[in-house]
Simulated assay, not measured.
Amino acid sequence: MKLNSTVLLTLILLILMLGAGSVSAFWGFTLGSAALKGVTAPDARPTPKFASSKSAKEQHTGIALLREDEILKIVKARIEGKTKAAKSSKQDDEDEETNSTKRQQEEKPLQVAEEKPQEGFPINTESEGVSLSVQSARFSGGALLLKVKMQNKGKDSVRFLYSFLDVSDNKGRTLSASTDGLPSELPANGPTYSGTVSIPTALLDDVKRISLALTDYPDQKLRLEVSNIPVER
């Protein structure tokens, strides 16, 4: 009786173990299938590679390459275009220069007419081979402008300091003046130099005549003096 109970218990345990193993196996298979759901094996076929290579080849061959003669034609056309543009620019410059020369030639008679000798001028003085000549006296831009020419025909060069230029009116009053264009040194046997002596108009309200006096610097061996320069408004 006791033996039969042991066998029965053993059988029950075996059945329970088999059942638990079966349930575990089924449950594991189910979980594995769910985990691998949607996962596919890689496509090992060579067709896509060949297709991709073919597509790349088609894209590469799609670039159009110019032939050498076409490139030479394009380069030649560009060079000719730049040459024509340069010639056109040069021609425009030449035309402008020609027109400017013509305008200058047309204006010369007017300039000559404007620079006719003023009545009572020039007024000249000379000392030790150095000459000073007042060519004209005209009002312009709020000042009296005296056009002056100087020349040294002596053997030695002569220096001047124009801040020592003495300008006075017919009443003996000293007037302030400035110079422009006159050289600080006259070379021996040199050319004629031109310049301007400017006197403010405000100083010449009741002035009829003015005088200029200039000595060389620093030796003061000569004295250039021009008197009775008429002042007309």
Rank of each mutant, 00 (worst) to 15 (best):
L214S: 03
S178Y: 01
P200A: 02
K90A: 09
L8M: 04
L72I: 07
V112L: 12
E115S: 08
V75C: 09
V39S: 07
G181A: 12
N152C: 00
P122H: 01
L72S: 09
L31A: 10
S52V: 03
F121H: 04
T174K: 12
L144F: 00
E106T: 08
Q118A: 13
S140I: 01
G154C: 00
A44S: 13
L204K: 03
T83Q: 05
A143D: 04
P109I: 04
D169W: 00
S100K: 10
T101S: 08
R233Y: 14
A41V: 09
I210Y: 00
R173C: 01
G172A: 01
G21A: 15
G19W: 07
T101L: 11
V39I: 11
A77E: 05
S163D: 14
S163R: 14
D43R: 03
K87I: 15
L161H: 03
S198C: 07
N124I: 07
S178T: 12
E80A: 06
K57E: 05
L110M: 08
V197S: 04
D93G: 06
S52H: 09
D216I: 01
K147V: 06
F50N: 11
Q105C: 05
E106K: 12
T10Q: 14
K147F: 04
L145R: 15
P183R: 08
E128L: 10
R159D: 14
G154F: 00
P218T: 06
I71G: 03
Q104Y: 12
P48R: 15
S194D: 02
G21E: 14
F50E: 07
I199H: 01
T61R: 12
G19R: 07
L132Q: 10
S136H: 02
E185D: 09
F29T: 07
L222W: 08
Q59P: 00
T174L: 08
K54W: 02
G181M: 10
